[in-house]
Design a binder for these strands. Structure first.
Ligand SMILES: [Mn+2]
Ligand SMILES: [Mn+2]
Ligand SMILES: [Zn+2]
Ligand SMILES: [Zn+2]
Lengths: 145, 145
DNA sequence: GAGTTGTTTTGAGTCATTCAAAACAACTGC
DNA sequence: GCAGTTGTTTTGAATGACTCAAAACAACTC
């Protein structure tokens, strides 16, 4: 069945980055993959549906490990909790709603980091350029002008 | 004397945005102006040198009011406390050191927000584009490869 | 100078996140 | 297969940056 194949692929990805294969890690990967930009609490809720004993602390541990290993990407927009997503390696950017905090993806025209180069680097060795667009999502526009 | 003139100009700027002129506000404006990117605690330390009775809560209140009024700009890089600066109205960007958190200014080639336009807006009404360059500052490079 | 409104202080509270230690489970090599 | 080693999860507590609320106070208005 398809879920079996997905599980084996997830296991392989964990091993490939040198992480032990554990139930919480598989559950977190599964909870995040294809579900947009989730904060730790939302991941925990989703994980618990499948693995009820999982602690929130474990979710934090796992998200941290997976993000560090490059299996997940972490974004941290000002004013809300950190979000995690499964879309990695393409250096895309984000739109964040100032009303409700909703996050949407924006394709990067360049694709690899850093996609922009600062005019004056001030001696910094620049690794990445993070672009966040702030605005109001369609729903928040409809709700209040 | 020069400080007198500066104080009167600061008073005028507060009045211009409809804020009452108070000692903590003048002290915070003075503490931030021309001193880079300071967090609330650093502002509090500087303010207390001049106005020792000032509470940290007041510094938060004042920074919030001044930023909302456009007299200060607030930036909130992931992983560190919010910073405030006096350079406003030019939509410049920032370099942040992943080692020590140091912040440097980067001129925006466009100058006005939003200086970039997302490829796909997903229905968002985009107001600003925030660009943060992440890298290592000169000192952190020297310290450890 | 009294009144009104906005500001500051004081003190407590919140939230996302982290720390630490003990219990536990995955992989290694026999 | 099983013990040993190492990494992971759980539990419980702590942290730091920031916010909330109410009372004391001060700036501006008339
Ligand atoms: Mn994304
Ligand atoms: Mn700046
Ligand atoms: Zn919205
Ligand atoms: Zn540095």
């Amino acid at each position: 069945m398809a879920t079996e194949i997905r599980r084996e692929q997830a296991e392989a990805r964990l091993r490939a980055v040198g992480l032990k294969v554990t139930a919480p890690r598989l559950a977190v990967l599964d909870a995040v993959t294809g579900h947009g930009h989730l904060d730790a609490d939302a991941v925990h809720t989703r994980v618990m549906a499948e693995l009820p004993a999982t602690s929130l602390q474990s979710v934090y541990n796992v998200l941290g490990a997976l993000a560090e290993a490059g299996l997940l990407r972490k974004i941290d927009p000002a004013g809300s909790a950190a979000r995690y997503e499964s879309r990695t390696g393409d250096n895309h950017h984000h739109l964040v709603c100032t009303g409700c905090g909703a996050v949407a993806d924006v394709d990067c025209v360049v694709g690899e980091a850093p996609c922009l180069t600062p005019s004056n680097t001030g001696g910094f060795a620049v690794a990445t350029a993070e672009v966040t667009f702030w605005g109001r999502c369609a729903e928040c526009q409809a709700a209040s002008g």
